[in-house]
Amino acid sequence: MNALPKKVKIVEVGPRDGLQNEKETISADVKIELVNRLSSAGFANIEAASFVSPKWVPQMATSAEVMERITRRAGAIYSALTPNMKGLEGALAAKADEVVIFGSASEAFSQKNINCSIEESIARFVDVAKAAKDHGLRLRGSISCSFGCPYQGDVPLDAVADVVGRMRDLGCDEIDIADTIGVATPRKTQAVMERAASVFRLDGISGHFHDTYGQALANIYASLEVGVSIFHSSVAGLGGCPYAKGATGNVATEDVLYMMNGLGIETGIDLDIVVDAGQYISGILNRKGSSRAGNAIAAKRAG
């Protein structure tokens, strides 16, 4: 095992990946306030928008307004999901710093979700990737179901490596290895991350873990042990898992930061400001957030 990284990058995905699953419409003002609070906490990278058809994801219909009105912190990366060329044009107009393309490591998931093979799905991004690079944007690739699939179950390591290689060839600067349904456990996590690192540089690989079975923090620690130093998380644990009824989704940012602080790993992020942001958005949604650390710190403050 490697020594743990001294510094990690946390990519905050709550404003996009977290909120997009909410049933009630969330106003642009609330999204802007949330992004601004997260920016002030010191995040180097915030996934703030998604330029998808409002017909498919109504919650993201205000993405252009959000990107226009947020207060951008110097040096921070504001990312947008772009499923096609139209989405890329939206991201360019909104002055996104990074565009995110996505595929699956599971053939069954690809067929069920977007009615095409993995190979076909990645081919659709060739033009998007080229245009992003031509415009000097960072390009991130996200690979869902890298640890397991709701339809086919186990996903072979070679299948993950294959998609990592395809994303690499498109010119991705960073590649997310995502546990979409939250089924991974630590040893499996290490095997997948090591396999991904055999085809792409380790410092460009990120872990995107869902906490469906309560394993996300353990999997992040296991990833740290093999040298992964980029992780995704969502303030207040925003976002459910659509394949496991009532299950939590993204690992909560507050919990990840609490662990990193305890390990002496530098994040550059102020946990107290993130706790405030988590309590703010939980209040708006009229429910308690799923962050253990966030709720404990808030309760301790309330005395």
Rank of each mutant, 00 (worst) to 15 (best):
Q215M: 15
S117N: 05
N286D: 14
K288Q: 14
L137W: 05
A161G: 03
A296G: 09
K288I: 08
I101S: 07
P242R: 10
Q20H: 13
A94L: 05
G87I: 00
V99S: 00
R124Q: 01
M260H: 03
G75V: 06
T267V: 05
A244K: 04
G90F: 09
M1W: 04
E120Q: 05
P15N: 13
R138H: 14
M1F: 01
E47L: 14
V155N: 04
K133Y: 08
E119G: 08
G14R: 05
K55R: 15
A3Q: 06
I101W: 11
S53V: 10
Q111K: 14
D272H: 04
G153P: 12
D17Q: 11
K9N: 04
S291G: 14
I177G: 00
R292I: 13
G148L: 09
K23M: 15
K9D: 03
Y280V: 00
R69E: 09
P242E: 10
A244F: 07
A222N: 06
A48L: 06
D255C: 11
A129N: 11
D169E: 03
L38E: 08
S290T: 15
I122Q: 02
Y213T: 12
L263Q: 01
D176N: 15
V57C: 10
R287G: 08
K300A: 15
E24T: 11
A277M: 06
E98W: 02
N261Y: 09
L4M: 14
C116D: 07
N115Y: 11
I26A: 04
V160P: 04
I101P: 03
K9I: 06
F109W: 14
Y243N: 08
G136I: 13
L19F: 05
I220G: 00
G289V: 02
Q59W: 07
A129H: 07
Y280M: 00
M167H: 07
M193C: 14
I273G: 04
G227K: 00
N295P: 08
I26N: 02
L92P: 01
G214A: 14
A61Q: 07
L81T: 03
P15I: 08
G153T: 12
Q279I: 08
T62D: 00
R138C: 13
A49G: 12
A48Q: 07
G283W: 06
F231L: 03
K6D: 11
L139I: 10
P15R: 09
G237S: 13
E194C: 13
S206H: 06
P83D: 09
K188S: 10
F209V: 10
S53F: 14
K112C: 06
G182V: 11
I265P: 01
P150D: 13
I175A: 02
G42M: 08
Q215I: 11
C241I: 05
S27N: 05
M167W: 09
R301K: 15
A105D: 06
M259S: 09
S27R: 09
S223I: 03
